[in-house]
């Protein structure tokens, strides 16, 4: 009661102070709700109809068959190299090397991707554009870092620690049982400290993703302006039957 009295007394004062021309209002109450968009809500028919032609065209393209895959490929099959990882790294090598050669005069020497970047399995049967989207849903582009022989040694140290089947191509690595690297060769030759090498990777890894810090200070960088997914789609398009297998590119004794 006391409180109300006070307010009544104050009211005219406040109104006169604030002035009526401003006519501002005060928030008296706020309520909120987070509404789940679920199957209990019936889809708006007009919107649904509007989406349909886009959806139809999209699905027709996504589901068009590009190639045939005889066996299921999974990133969990294999120790330090997997059939699916080898496929992806080899595709980057084959598809991006001509692009980089045009721009720099040199071919790609090696490819390094990350195991975590293999986002799905490749089921046996028909391979479609959708398969490429599943495998590589991100927009990552291929970049080529020119690294010194010394920086490549850093890369090998990284791989020793990672003990992971990060996809590689163009380099052959032999490790002992404890992942310690015994031998690494590029086109049959040992890594030369005084040479530089063209290492293709994704812009994500190049920019420090997965702590691949050996990319931090390259001699040169060349952008391929080529998405990894598009490289996969282009490869699938020109391939009839996918031949991917585990091999001896990165092994332990």
């Amino acid at each position: 009661m006391k409180f109300k009295f006070l307010i009544t007394l104050l009211s005219p004062l406040l109104i006169c102070c604030k002035g009526t021309e401003k006519n501002s209002r005060n928030v008296a109450e706020i309520s909120s709700e987070r509404i789940s968009i679920n199957s209990e809500i019936i889809a708006d028919q007009e919107i649904d109809e509007f989406i349909k032609p886009y959806q139809k065209h999209l699905n027709a393209t996504l589901d068009s068959v590009l190639a045939y895959n005889p066996t299921l490929l999974s990133k969990n099959d294999g120790d330090l190299n997997t059939a699916i990882g080898n496929l992806m790294a080899d595709v980057v090598m084959q598809q991006a090397s001509p692009v980089i050669e045009k721009r720099s005069g040199r071919k790609i020497d090696i490819v390094l991707l990350n195991h975590g970047g293999i986002r799905s399995e490749l089921p046996s049967g028909d391979i479609t554009t959708r398969s490429a989207y599943n495998l590589m849903p991100f927009e990552n582009e291929i970049v080529v870092a020119e690294l010194t022989g010394a920086q490549l040694k850093e890369m090998l140290k990284y791989l020793e620690k990672a003990k992971t089947a990060h996809p590689i191509s163009g380099i052959k690595i032999k490790a002992n049982r404890d992942y310690k690297i015994r031998e690494a060769t590029i086109k049959g030759e040992k890594i030369d400290k005084n040479e530089t090498y063209f290492v293709a990777t994704s812009d994500y890894l190049f920019n420090g993703g997965d702590n691949m810090n050996f990319f931090r200070d390259p001699v040169n960088v060349y952008a391929a302006d080529y998405k990894i997914r598009n490289a996969l789609i282009d490869h699938f398009t020109k391939t009839d039957t996918i031949r991917a297998k585990i091999d001896d590119r990165y092994i332990r004794e």
């Binding site: 307010i7 928030v27 109450e29 706020i30 987070r34």
Partner: peptide, 13 residues
């Protein structure tokens, strides 16, 4: 969908 409802009073005090 987020929803926030504001109720505004003319009561200036």
């Amino acid at each position: 969908l987020g929803r926030v409802d504001f109720f505004l009073d003319e009561n200036k005090n």
